[in-house]
Design a binder for these strands. Structure first.
Lengths: 221, 221
DNA sequence: AAAATAATTTTGATTAGTCAAACAGTAAAT
DNA sequence: ATTTACTGTTTGACTAATCAAAATTATTTT
């Protein structure tokens, strides 16, 4: 059984290269995991020796099927735990990410199965991220539109927030932009970099373009 | 923040010497933690340097107030988690000990508070072990009677099982001796070492003396 | 094409936790 | 009062994970 460090390394690769065969630079991993580049090189060679990933020196790193299986398993735990903490224990969705970060390495498959059943086998977590299946499938919605590139003046639903930081999630809550919210983009000002959204009943949300790009939407059902 | 290894060492001392000032031998710790005696000596010196316990070489080890606080905090997490897993997620009480052993090191104080509130601030866990309070008090029932030494032919309630091993807990379940069960001891045969219990409605349980000593009882309320 | 820049890998050290085996006290038995 | 047996401590070595800083390679610029 992999250590939690190993699980975190593999998860980091997966999150930055979900597609089979996609590669990640060691620099990106160092950034993501908060360690020095040298540490990444060392660990990557070690993980490659275990058959969990491939390393093409100075080019990048790619998950093997075995490594991908570990990463997806951890991600499933993470997202089911987050969902449980929010839905059952009523924790703040802005703080469950950190909690799940620890719990994902401590939960047995047996407990995971109980949690999944208790929740009724949910498909997405509170941020709108898809929950991998027990068989390792990750149902990714391809090329979703965001508030930064969707059509203007069309009613949409917020589907997913792709930044788990507490600060951003707290802004999203306060602005009324949580997943499920009904919304339309009124105006997108390239010069000022400001996006203005209509939430109905006269409520308005204003945010910057990079922030708008972190909020995925889909056509209203 | 202490590592989970440190938490386990301190918990092991506490469980073997709950009374303030009681001491534990390094040998007993090696046995309990499944490491070699030399490892214990090394770690104990390290923990003593951190002010978490006192070491009297060749005599024994004693928790300091700081060490005791850590140990009790971990025990509170352990027992609340066990209770949650059994009551809410309906896991088998014989298997939750191992699960809690991992989770007790991964749960934040915030999540713990939510679990405690969700359960309505329970006083004992599924094995009848007292749950320490958030203030660090451990309400220990002193000198409880067991099936090995209680009076005969008196109706009693099973209060606590002091062996967390899966095998024993499974026997207890199958024999109908879980905490709360109404019971009286019919006969205690010193020569054969057998204890026979009446569970009412003609049901009988038979067990050995050492096993009977692991089942605490109290007078029926 | 050479020089400058940026990214990656190597190297040598460090910390936490562990073991095996040698060593040293303590206590019991002769 | 020695010897024996037991328990506890030291010592030297090892693994996982990490860092700082030097060395290397690839990529741009000029």
């Amino acid at each position: 059984m992999p250590t939690s460090t190993v699980e975190n390394y593999l998860k980091a690769v997966f999150l930055r290269a979900p597609g089979t065969g996609a590669t990640v630079s060691t620099g990106a991993m160092a950034e993501a995991l908060g360690v020095t580049p040298g540490t990444i090189t060392t660990m990557v060679k070690h993980l490659a020796a275990q058959g969990l990933l491939e390393h093409n020196p100075r080019a990048g790193v790619r998950l093997t099927p075995a490594g991908r299986a570990v990463a997806v398993g951890v991600l499933r735990k993470h997202r089911l735990v987050e969902t449980f903490l929010v839905r059952v224990l009523e924790m703040d969705w802005a703080e469950v990410h950190a909690e799940a970060e620890a719990l994902e390495h401590a939960i047995s498959d047996r407990l995971l199965a109980r949690i999944d059943a208790y929740l009724g086998h949910p498909k997405v977590d509170p941020h709108g991220d898809p929950i991998p299946t027990a068989q390792g499938k990750v149902p990714e919605a391809e090329k979703a539109a965001t508030l930064a590139d969707c059509p203007l003046k069309k009613w949409l639903r917020v589907a997913r927030i792709t930044d788990q930081s507490t600060a951003f999630l707290e802004f999203v809550t306060q602005a009324g932009l949580k997943p499920g919210a009904r919304i339309q983009v009124r105006q997108r000002e390239a010069a000022s970099g400001v996006v203005r959204c209509d939430l109905g009943r006269g409520r308005l949300a204003v945010l910057g373009l990079p922030e708008a790009a972190k909020i995925q939407v889909r056509a209203e059902a």
